[in-house]
């Protein structure tokens, strides 16, 4: 499936290297989805997703928990579309996963 997406987006520019990097990115995003789904059982009913100074804007966990994985998915699609897959960008997805985990533990 990943290869098909990459083939349709990158066409002749698909190489073994960017295929591997896309796999890594999709793998991290999948982990983010799974972790978010699992964390739903431990998170409070509402989690803050926005804050303006000292004011927080909480939303139900069922709604807010998917924000991080979906943002990561959009970013990954954009990277693939623009042919910008690199080790640095994969590292950013890793950092995003860590940030997400830290956020979940801080609101628990």
């Amino acid at each position: 499936m990943v290869r098909k997406i990459l083939k349709s987006m990158l066409g002749d520019n698909l190489t073994e290297n960017n295929e591997k990097l896309a796999m890594v990115n999709f793998g991290i995003i999948l982990i983010m989805f799974v972790v978010s789904a699992v964390m739903l059982f431990f998170l409070p009913e509402q989690i803050p997703i926005l804050h303006n100074g000292a004011t927080n804007y909480p939303v139900p966990s069922v709604l807010g928990v998917w924000l991080f994985p979906l943002i990561a998915l959009i970013i990954n699609m954009t990277f693939i579309k623009q042919g910008r897959l690199s080790k640095m960008n994969s590292a950013i997805f890793g950092i995003l996963l860590i940030v997400m985990l830290m956020f979940y533990f801080s609101v628990m």
Partner: peptide, 22 residues
């Protein structure tokens, strides 16, 4: 010189629906 697969369009729809609802 542009083409997108169905899975990409479905992803965009899911993401768009979620963002709009939020």
């Amino acid at each position: 010189r542009s083409k997108n697969s169905t899975i990409v369009w479905i992803s965009y729809v899911i993401v768009g629906g979620y963002m709009g609802y939020l």
